[in-house]
Amino acid sequence: MLEILTSPLLAGTRHGFFTRRGGASSGVFSGLNCGHGSSDQTDTVAVNRDRVAAAMGVAPAQMIGVDQIHSADVAVVEAPLSAPVKADALVTATPGLLLTILTADCEPVLFADRKAGVIGAAHAGWRGAKEGVLEATLDAMEGLGAQRADIVAVIGPCISQRAYEVGHDFMEDFLIDDPETSRFFSGGPNGKPMFDLPAYGLSRLRAAGVGEAEWTRHCTYSDPERFYSFRRTTHAGEADYGRLISVIRL
């Protein structure tokens, strides 16, 4: 049975942060692996994605995703894409289209302005968030008639600070750009910094002027029964990992 996490902030839109439960994949992908970019069987991934579409009340052809590249690029969509698009966020004002984002530790962020009838979805790892993908998504939504103060944004399951050890050079890159980002780092047990990705994402969303923003407070690394995690897979020496899907539609 599928497990779908939702947020009261997005009430009035069909949406969900899907966990790995209820899928057809097996082995290291066991569960609802929705990533065609993995080495999982193509037919099995298609079955998983069909289950997501059915749960959201759309045909599989109405599921819209992009080739995610850790950028700040946003695709404005009015119909199913006829060719692959490289971007890390999507926005639409077209009812019935299911915007989808794939993650396995990065932030999946869902946006909605219910008054204007505009929604968005973004893939925000540290690089994309630092380069401005969240702000770019808000800009693109405004281009479709949304009002910044009416937009709500929810960050779904992602890696939490207690599991996100980084290098000192990583931290220094942030501090050189903005010394105020020091608050998103703490000392770790191995003498290296620990980065608070969801707090960083929330800070940027709130600074950008969204009406409300929250994190669901689920850590992908720390809950293997429910979530895939790139970092956990790397630490375990596994060959590949599944991708979680997060979706929203009008």
Rank of each mutant, 00 (worst) to 15 (best):
V28E: 02
V28R: 01
F29M: 07
F29Q: 10
G31W: 03
N33F: 02
H36Y: 15
G37N: 01
G37C: 13
S38T: 15
S38V: 09
S38P: 00
S38R: 02
S39V: 09
S39Q: 12
S39E: 02
D40G: 12
Q41F: 05
D43M: 02
V45F: 02
A46D: 15
R49D: 10
R49G: 06
R49C: 10
D50N: 09
D50H: 10
R51C: 14
R51S: 14
R51V: 10
V52I: 14
V52D: 06
V52L: 10
A54K: 04
A54I: 00
A55T: 02
M56Q: 12
M56F: 11
M56R: 01
M56T: 08
G57N: 03
G57P: 03
V58K: 08
V58P: 01
V58M: 06
A59W: 08
P60N: 07
P60L: 11
P60C: 01
Q62I: 07
M63V: 15
M63F: 06
V66E: 00
V66M: 03
Q68R: 04
Q68I: 13
I69F: 00
I69S: 01
I69L: 09
I69H: 05
I69M: 12
H70A: 13
S71C: 10
A72D: 12
V74D: 10
V74Y: 07
V74I: 15
A75H: 12
A75C: 15
A75V: 12
V76P: 00
V76I: 12
V76R: 09
V77T: 08
V77K: 02
V77A: 02
V77M: 04
E78Y: 05
E78W: 00
E78S: 13
A79W: 00
S82A: 13
S82Y: 02
P84Y: 12
K86F: 03
K86R: 13
D88G: 10
D88N: 11
